[in-house]
């Protein structure tokens, strides 16, 4: 019971520090902006550990963070193999191929008004569909290897990316396009100097949405059949053995790679669209 009281105390301390930091004089500095969410996260982790130990929750239901960390450290080799199989082979290759194909399609579609008006509502519709459901079909077609996972990822990221890129390419105003016309710029020049830069925020929005979808697609596809490694395989077999430490370690790997993946895309966005209103700082 004392541990649970400690947990409540920890919460009070963490929250108090955050209140002071967030409303204090240094509230807009980068350090505070980083510290506040970190303190929040650490408080939650600490409370998790204390409450699980204090209430003696069975590790089958919720293992404490320390146990997960130990299991993670013990199985680094296995998890690295799973990471390579699922993230690098399945998700990343599908992501690159799917987003690339969608981008090229968007460029083609953009040249014809008929195609755009036909594909866009369809793309919007497809983007809202539960495409994860095609996973069993694609696993049946492409076998249990990483190829079928990449195929699921391609299907999942294709439509959101297509819709975003097409929307981005029509972002320019008629004034800007007229200017390019008076310069007698070719289609390629207009695309390269005006419309692609203008479309970049939309493209990156699509890339960010797709980064999460890619991981989901690759992992879920493994539930329908996979070789004896991969994060989805690890999660589903470890549950069968009630090895919850391993399950949570696999989840940790997928969470970390998801966050890093998203972070990298966001970083690239900052580097390339620094001129856009949403990145010029301040609200």
């Amino acid at each position: 019971m004392t541990l649970v009281i400690f947990a409540v105390l920890l919460w009070a301390v963490g929250f108090g520090v955050n209140v002071v930091l967030a409303n204090g004089p240094a509230r807009d500095t980068g350090a505070v902006r980083l510290a506040v969410p970190l303190i929040f996260g650490l408080t939650i982790l600490g409370m998790w550990e204390l409450i699980v130990r204090g209430m003696q929750v069975s590790t089958v239901i919720l293992p404490p963070p320390s146990l997960i960390a130990a299991s993670f450290a013990e199985n680094l080799g296995t998890l690295w193999g799973d990471f390579v199989q699922t993230i690098l082979k399945g998700a990343l290759s599908g992501y690159i191929f799917g987003c690339g194909a969608a981008f090229v399609t968007a460029l083609l579609v953009d040249r014809s008004d008929y195609l755009r008006r036909g594909l866009l509502p369809l793309g919007n519709f497809m983007a809202a569909l539960p495409i994860v459901g095609t996973a069993p079909i694609l696993v049946m077609w492409f076998g249990f290897g990483w190829q079928s996972k990449a195929a699921v990822v391609v299907l999942m990221v294709y439509f959101p990316m297509l819709v975003n890129t097409v929307a981005g390419l029509s972002e320019t105003t008629s004034m800007q396009r007229d200017l390019m016309r008076t310069y007698a710029a070719t289609w390629g020049q207009t695309l390269w100097t005006l419309r692609l830069p203008a479309a970049l925020p939309f493209v990156f929005n699509g890339l960010k949405i797709c980064s999460t979808l890619a991981l989901i697609g690759a992992i879920v596809a493994e539930f329908f059949g996979s070789p004896t490694l991969g994060l989805g395989f690890r999660i589903s077999t470890s549950i069968g053995q009630l090895d919850l430490g391993m399950v949570w370690s696999a989840i940790l790997v997928s969470a970390l790679s998801g966050t890093v993946f998203y972070g990298l895309v966001a970083l690239a966005e900052r580097r390339t669209t620094f001129w856009h209103a949403s990145h010029r700082g301040g609200r």
């Binding site: 303190i39 999460t212 879920v220 994060l231 999660i235 589903s236 989840i251 969470a255 966050t259 998203y262």
Partner: peptide
């Protein structure tokens, strides 16, 4: 609340980079 804005919002974004769908079997078993 400024505190909530600064502490919860980043974690809400991180929570979406976790492929939650992959946790589905575990959540159900637990």
């Amino acid at each position: 609340s400024r505190v909530m804005d600064m502490s919860v919002m980043p974690w809400a974004i991180v929570s979406q980079t976790i492929p939650i769908v992959a946790l589905a079997p575990m959540i159900i078993v637990v």
